[in-house]
Structures are given as structure tokens and as C-alpha cells.
């Protein structure tokens, strides 16, 4: 690991000011991904600004009837919170299905959103990777990509976004509060993460110096009927092969409203907007769920070895929606 300076931020504004001036500095939250990437040599900052003591770490009800979650809230505390568990079970389940108990106790909400892909090539500095070293190439396209993207990828990058939490937040339409060089602003989800295009090194729309300070969940009464289902290669402690976050509002057998996002299939948490519009007003039946899934997945462009994710995502989506429709 390259030597670096460590500084503990005294307040959010000064932290942002420091990073705005120093492009070689990065924020340190829980460190679970950053420290690992530094050890791998994937990132080599010259300065860490520890923001864990200045970024809000509380969860409170927001003015709009939703929840305001401080970006410094540890993932473990997020899943323990009664308001989150009661009103947005999909979020609690998503976070609980990510990583391990130990890592959830360290990782922060802000850091979780900014996780980097776990694509093998990205993590191996002895090999090319456009996300790590722009212009060097993408060996995953012809190499091992069984667990990479089927949606939203580009010729320069086929990586997936690893976060489970982000998938639930994308489904719920969370709003990310950011403190930047020019003051505070909000970024809606989806919208924080960006598709790779020909700039795969930029995972998000954040600018240098930007610090995530909170995540706001909108009021969404029917989210009490929501669920996260994660398909993975082992029963626990593994990244998603495919995941589905969904909330469903059904009355008299008809879908009034829904929120759906997919994980493990795209470079971003994938909000399934086409499926959502196809379902609004449709009968809450497995057939309609399947039709909606097909409409969404018609955009899929699977690679040589990951075509199985298309029917897998369809099955899981139909299964989750069916369970939600049947739940009382």
C-alpha cells in the first residue's frame, strides 16, 4: 500500500474543502471496501480524510413523512432500526443479505452506495481493466463473465454493481443528500450511479469533493409490503447472481402501484421502470408478472456465459411479486 496521510475531519464543510483541494485525497468511512482496494493496489490515495465522526449517524423521520438516514449509520444499525424494519422491510432485508455481520457493523450507508465492482479483472492490477485503468481494455468480455452484467453494459465495461442496499434504495426511489464544493444538493436514486458508456472509471455522478451526508426515503405506505430476494452461489456471504427488490400495492386483485429494482445484472442498481409501468393497472397474477418481466428483460444483452441470468431474473421477479401479491 502506498503511504498516505490520515486526517480526522472536524466537520463536514472542512472535509469537503480539503477534498476539493486535494484530488489525491479520499473520504474514509467504514473502510471495508476502500481499505481492501488500497491493499490490492487498485486505488492509491495519498490522504485519507476520516469522516466517520462528522457524518450524521442517526435515523429520523423526515419532514416529508419518510425517513432520513445519516450516511454515517452503520449497516448493522440500519437493519436493527424499528422504523426501517417496519416501514421498509425490503431495505432491511437487502442490507442483511449483504456481506457478513462483522462487515455490516463497520460499513456505512454512504460507503455502501460507493462500493466498487467485484469483477475479478478490476481487482487484479496485473491485468487490464477500463474501470481501473481507462483505455487498457476489458478482458471480461471474452474472459470470465458468468456473474457480470446482462443489462446496461458497454463495450468498455461489463461489470456489475455489488451493493444489495443500493438495489433496495433504487426501488424505493431514495434521495441522496450530498455536500459538495458549492454547498448541499440532492441526487435521486436511481441516478446516483451511472452506466459505464465509454467512461467506466466513473461509477457515479458525484464530483470531486462530494460527500454523501444522508439518504432520504420517501413516504411509501405500500412499502410495508416489500421484499428483497437474493440469489447467490452459496446460501450466505456471497455477492448476488441476481437479486430483486420489490414493493407492491394491490387492491382487488389489481396492481395499483409497484417499485421494482434488479441487482447483480447491471453496472448500476437497475430500476425496472418498464416492468413497473406494464404492471400498473394490470391484474396481480403470475402471468402478468411474467409479461412485465419479459418487457423489462427484452433489453438484456447477455454475454457468452451469462445468458442464464435472463430467465433467472424473470423467475425471481415473478416469484417475489407473486409472494407479495399473496401476502396479507
Amino acid at each position: 500500500m502506498r503511504p498516505f496521510a490520515y486526517e480526522r475531519a472536524t466537520d463536514v464543510r472542512s472535509a469537503v474543502a480539503t477534498l476539493s483541494e486535494r484530488p489525491d485525497a479520499v473520504y474514509l468511512g467504514g473502510g471495508t471496501n476502500l481499505v481492501d482496494l488500497m491493499r490490492l493496489g487498485v486505488v492509491s490515495p495519498e490522504m485519507l480524510v476520516d469522516v466517520t465522526r462528522v457524518v450524521d449517524a442517526t435515523i429520523e423521520e423526515s419532514a416529508g413523512g419518510g425517513l432520513l438516514i445519516g450516511a454515517g449509520v452503520r449497516n448493522g444499525d440500519l437493519t436493527a432500526d424499528p422504523l426501517v424494519r417496519g416501514r421498509y422491510p425490503v431495505l432491511a432485508q437487502a442490507v442483511l443479505s449483504g456481506a457478513s455481520g462483522q462487515i455490516r457493523n463497520m460499513a456505512t450507508v454512504g460507503g455502501n452506495l460507493l462500493q466498487r465492482t467485484r469483477c475479478s479483472y478490476f481487482q487484479d492490477t496485473s491485468k487490464p481493466c477500463n474501470k481501473r485503468r481507462p483505455g487498457s481494455g476489458c478482458p471480461a468480455r471474452e474472459g470470465d463473465h458468468r456473474n457480470l452484467a446482462i443489462l446496461g453494459h458497454s463495450s468498455s465495461c461489463v461489470a456489475t454493481h455489488p451493493s444489495d442496499m443500493a438495489v433496495a434504495l433504487a426501488a424505493l426511489g431514495a434521495v441522496v443528500h450530498v455536500e459538495g464544493r458549492h454547498g448541499p444538493r440532492t441526487v435521486p436514486m436511481p441516478g446516483l450511479h451511472r452506466l459505464p458508456g465509454d467512461e467506466p472509471d466513473r461509477d457515479t455522478v458525484l464530483e470531486p469533493g462530494d460527500l454523501i451526508t444522508a439518504v432520504e426515503l420517501p413516504e411509501l405506505p405500500f412499502a410495508t409490503r416489500s421484499r428483497y430476494r437474493k440469489v447467490r452461489d452459496r446460501a450466505s456471504f456471497a455477492f448476488a447472481v441476481v437479486s430483486v427488490a420489490a414493493a407492491l400495492d394491490v387492491a382487488d386483485g389489481v396492481v395499483r402501484d409497484c417499485r421494482i429494482a434488479l441487482g447483480g445484472v447491471a453496472p448500476v442498481p437497475w430500476r425496472a421502470e418498464l416492468a413497473e409501468s406494464a404492471l400498473r393497472g394490470a391484474a396481480a397474477t403470475a402471468a402478468e408478472f411474467g409479461r412485465a418481466a419479459d418487457i423489462e428483460l427484452a433489453q438484456a444483452r447477455p454475454l457468452r456465459d451469462n445468458g442464464f441470468k435472463v430467465p433467472l431474473a424473470r423467475n425471481v421477479l415473478v416469484g417475489v411479486l407473486t409472494d407479495l401479491a399473496e401476502a396479507r
Partner: peptide
């Protein structure tokens, strides 16, 4: 952070000490 053998308790909570910088 992938095996758990380094787990210790920090302020009573279990964490992976291989991902925690001592300076923090």
C-alpha cells in the same frame, strides 16, 4: 474481510480487524 478469522470486538461489536486501520 472474506474469512472472519481476524474478528475482534470493537466497543462490543464484532468487526473484521483486517479491514480496520489502527489509526482510526
Amino acid at each position: 474481510g472474506q474469512c472472519g478469522a481476524c474478528t475482534v470486538l470493537v466497543d462490543g461489536r464484532r468487526v473484521k480487524s483486517c479491514l480496520a486501520l489502527t489509526v482510526t
